[in-house]
Structure formats: C-alpha cells, structure tokens
Amino acid sequence: MEVDREFKIVTLGEGRVGKTSLAMRYVRGQFNEKEQSTTNANFLEKNIRINETSIKLNIWDTAGQERFRALAPNYYREAKGALLVYDITDKESFWKVVSWVEELKMQADKDISFVIAGNKCDLELDRQIPKEQAIAYAKQIGAAHYSTSAKSGMGVNECFEEIAKLILDKESRSGSPIRSSKARSRVIVKNQEEVVKKKKSGGCC
C-alpha cells in the first residue's frame, strides 16, 4: 500500500495520565493495566486511511515527569499534531495540559493541531474535572476534546483520527500539502490498514 502522507504526532501530559496506554490501545489494540513508566519517549506507528488519503501516523509517546520536559522539544519540534492527555480524576493533570498548550504555542510548529483527551473515563465516579470546563477550554484554544478510556477503548480511535483530520484540513486550507517523497514510494506491509469511517458516534463532544 502506498502512503500519501506521514504525520508526526506527539502525546504530552502529566505522568500516569495514560499517554502510553492510549497510544498502545490505538496502535496495537491492547490495554495493559500495568504499563511501565516511560523514560524519555517511545515511538509507535500506524497506517490509517481518511477518506481517500492513506496516512502513516508516527506517534511519539513522551515521558510525563517534569524533569523530562527539557527533552520534549526534540519530540514536538516537527510535530504536526499533539494529543494532550489529562486524567479526569486528577485536577492537576488538567492544568498541566494548559501549560503544555502555552509552551507549544510558543515553541512548536505554528500550524500544530491540538486534540485534548480526558482519559480514564471509565472512572467517571472519581471525576474531578467537569467535562464542560474541559470542553470550554478546548473550544477557547481551537482544539477538539474527547473523552477517552484506554481501558475500554472509548474515544481512542476517534481522538487520534481527529488529529489526522485536523492536520489534513489545515493543509488543504493552506493549499500546500506536505507530500513526503520518501513516503510516496514506500510500500508498507507491517501494519494493518484501517479504513476510517465517517465520524463514529460517541467520544467527541
């Protein structure tokens, strides 16, 4: 299969909010209750198809501890999209998302697309961040907000695909699709291709 586009996206957020779990659920369809903590960054890739465009998503899954923030620019520098993850049961983790947005606006690609994921939605009873507040914030910064659960799989595909769509939209609007010459000629057999249907129900707000 030919790849039309390659997008680099980065997951950011406080430690233990579920960045790795979301990426793993999305790419491998697995959920491990006992995920190891991430040092530095992991790298995952997945091929998807949105409308008629086949896209390879290069996902950089970063470490959450504050000390590793110094290394983060290496990973978000050329990223076209960012998945900002917070844990709905942890207020602090939401404020971390806010601070990441500030940093990305200053430091990252000016066309970077944001999607905010409120993860661990299976723990609705322990929710500390009102959904409305998160959605309002997302709206304010022009991002999409998704309620996700890496455990149940809810909203996971949707949030990653939304990033791909946002990047595609931005490209078509600016009229300069970034067509990677390397990507065009490459044949991918490694990952299973997924055809993305039009917006699925649930997940997005």
């Binding site: 390659e6 793993m24 190891q36 790298f43 995952l44 890739e45 390879k56 390397k182 990507a183 490459r186």
Partner: peptide
C-alpha cells in the same frame, strides 16, 4: 531502513 521512523522502530522496541 529508509526512514527515520523505520530506524527507530528497529532500535527502540516499545514494550519490555
């Protein structure tokens, strides 16, 4: 390996 991503997926296995 023809791309940066291919190199990294060889050199950096994801899970233990």
């Amino acid at each position: 390996a023809a791309t940066r991503e291919d190199i990294l997926s060889i050199i950096k296995p994801f899970q233990p």
